[in-house]
């Protein structure tokens, strides 16, 4: 983050985890102000728990509103997942059953969030390792319904689509076809790891490696369907030298340039 505070790296925008900046004061917030003076910011939340049956925490929501007012981010996003139950916070993005009950809970929570911060948010598709027996909707239909009922946009994580498809046995092209393209406001790319083999082969979303070949292919497919979209490389464990990260960003920019008209301004961060 120090490099970005000085404004040196060539990036159009920077994405932060909103909750890391929920602190009262100190150097971390000061550094964010410096980054903000050089780049546009995207606030990507991991703690709002939009899938919680018990609803979203109003204090959390008001802290988010303060951060949004202070930073004036270009984009605000969260996840299709839950992490709070009985006031215990599980520090992971846990999956939801794709049922009408869950859909109504997420729509209610997204409505409340958008009202509280006064703007549309993007919802990101999760990476998942299993399915719920009670699910009646596919993930892409669930997201399409959520977007339609709440007016939220979507953050398409292409690596998550690939990881979930490999783990749960669905076709990535069907997923892409099912997503409402106009709602997609941002794309994420990241690395995953492969654990086990044969029956026990499992892809794990680690954000700790370069973007895999098949994920680049799927990204290309997504851009052909959607047109250019702001794209972010996520890398938050085993973070490499900045050059490695920027090289990944340049690869994504080449893909974007290939589908962009000259007046398009979608950029990689």
């Amino acid at each position: 983050m120090a490099a970005f505070a000085s404004g040196t790296p060539d990036a159009a925008w920077v994405e932060i985890h909103s909750e890391n900046f929920f602190v009262p004061g100190g150097p971390r917030l000061a550094q964010l102000e410096d980054v903000r003076s050089h780049y546009a910011i995207s606030c990507h939340g991991v703690g709002l728990s939009l899938g919680s049956a018990q609803g979203v925490d109003v204090d959390h929501l008001s802290t988010l509103r303060d951060l949004v007012d202070r930073i004036e981010p270009g984009l605000v996003s969260e996840h299709l997942s839950f992490s709070v139950v009985d006031d215990i916070y599980v520090n992971d993005l846990l999956p939801l059953p794709y049922t009408e009950e869950a859909l109504q809970a997420v729509v209610r929570n997204v409505d409340q969030t958008q009202e509280a911060i006064g703007r549309e948010i993007l919802i990101e598709n999760p990476s998942s390792y299993l399915a719920f027996v009670d699910s009646v909707l596919t993930e892409w239909d669930f997201l399409a319904e959520l977007s339609q009922r709440s007016g939220c946009g979507l953050l398409l994580d292409v690596n998550n689509i690939y990881v979930s498809a490999e783990n749960n046995g669905f076709d990535v092209s069907t997923y892409l076809e099912g997503v409402p393209g106009d709602a997609v406001g941002e794309i994420h790319l990241a690395g995953h790891s492969i654990d086990g083999s044969g029956e026990e082969r499992l892809l794990i979303d680690t954000h700790g490696d370069v973007v895999a070949g098949p994920v680049w292919t799927l990204y290309q497919q997504a851009l052909e369907k959607l047109g250019p979209r702001p794209t972010l490389i996520e890398w938050d464990t085993d973070i490499p030298e900045l050059e490695v990260l920027l090289a990944e960003a340049h690869t994504a920019q080449r893909h974007l340039d290939a589908v962009s008209m000259p007046e398009d301004s979608s950029r990689v961060a």
Binding site: P97, Y129, L130, A131, F132, V133, D134, N167, N168, G169, G196, G198, E199, E200, R201, L202
Partner: peptide, 11 residues
Amino acid sequence: HVSAARGSTER
């Protein structure tokens, strides 16, 4: 309440 496409659900 959960199922795995293949292999162990516990894992």
